[in-house]
């Protein structure tokens, strides 16, 4: 994909005279290719700096699925790396075993890590849990996103721990985060709404950070297209999370008609966090009585899932 000049009817960049490739609607600003790159990378740098997400001496494990968000995250963090002192990046890829879907994204992740010269580690569900996601889900397809989410979280944490990581970065973008805020409100789940996974865990778990949380899905896709790094990958066959799909559709429509809606939702979450944390019972951190991992109840999510599935997830537990 390329950008041209002098094209009929195409707006000009608000910061220079080049043809605009993107309209940043929250502030009604047109951006050319160069200024779009700068705006996105600077916003990620600001997010990291303002929230103290990466500090000197960190080893950051980047969850690299090979999809568009993690690809952009890996590219941007690699570009910003020289601006941080003594920070190391390691890519970690989880292969859940989703036939006809994950093979292609894993190949894409391999290519990217090689191109960027970043250390790359792989973990698979069969190695960690004894079976592929396809096999684990047989007959339970309607619970796919919940089950996969719990297993992926454990797998990523395991790979990050093996890599000696002090932070685990994921590619969640503004759209994902705004959707989660609205979903938590709709479910009445205030503890989850104010939970801060990037907070200091005193070494009990690796803090998860989301450097793309202020960058929209459309900005990320445009960034990748302009870097010729876009791949029209297949959709996950299990992506049938009804509530998230509905919330995504509602928010995308609201964002178009009322630009800045998603940013405002995130600002609201920030204000709620600041004013209500401590007042909302999030509960102390416990150790899972089965595996010893930190959790909010007696059992961690994986051990609860094992009981629910009533099956042995054998293999090397993370």
């Amino acid at each position: 994909m390329v950008t041209g000049s002098g094209t009929y009817g195409q707006p000009r960049c608000s910061l220079c005279s080049e043809p605009a490739v993107f309209f940043y609607r929250p502030v009604q600003r047109h951006l050319c290719r160069t200024h779009l790159f700068t705006a996105i990378e600077q916003r990620v740098a600001d997010t990291v700096s303002d929230r103290n997400l990466i500090v000197q001496g960190d080893t950051v494990a980047v969850g690299l699925s090979g999809g568009k968000d993690s690809t952009a995250l890996m590219m941007i963090l690699t570009k910003l790396l020289p601006s941080w002192e003594n920070v190391r990046l390691v890519a970690v890829t989880v292969d859940e075993g989703i036939s006809g879907y994950r093979e292609e994204t894993v190949r894409s992740a391999d290519r990217l890590a090689r191109t960027l010269g970043v250390e790359h580690r792989h973990v698979t569900f069969p190695d960690l849990f004894g079976d592929s996601l396809d096999a684990i889900l047989r007959g339970r397809e309607s619970q796919a996103c919940t089950i996969c989410g719990i297993l992926r979280k454990k797998a990523l944490a395991s790979a990050a721990r093996d890599a000696g990581a002090t932070k685990l970065a994921t590619g969640h973008n503004l759209d994902d985060e705004a959707q989660s805020v609205l979903m938590n409100v709709l479910r009445g789940d205030l503890p989850r709404l104010v939970r801060d996974s990037s907070a200091d865990s005193s070494g009990r778990f690796i803090p998860r950070i989301k450097p793309l949380r202020a960058v929209s899905e459309k900005e990320i896709a445009t960034y990748l297209l302009l870097h010729e790094a876009w791949m029209d990958l297949p959709e996950c066959p299990y992506a049938r999370h009804a509530l998230r799909r509905e919330v995504r559709s509602i928010l995308t429509s609201l964002e178009y008609h009322h630009p800045g809606t998603m940013l405002h939702l995130m600002e609201s979450k920030g204000k709620i966090e600041k004013n209500c944390i401590g007042a909302i019972a999030t509960g102390p951190l416990h150790s899972c009585r089965e595996c010893g991992d930190p959790c909010s109840g007696e059992l961690c999510q994986l051990c609860q899932l094992k009981k629910t599935l009533d099956r042995e997830l054998s293999g090397n537990r993370p």
């Binding site: 950008t3 195409q10 707006p11 605009a20 047109h30």
Partner: peptide, 8 residues
């Protein structure tokens, strides 16, 4: 082949 914003 050129990306264009939606208000083009």
């Amino acid at each position: 082949g050129f990306l264009i914003p939606e208000d083009t």
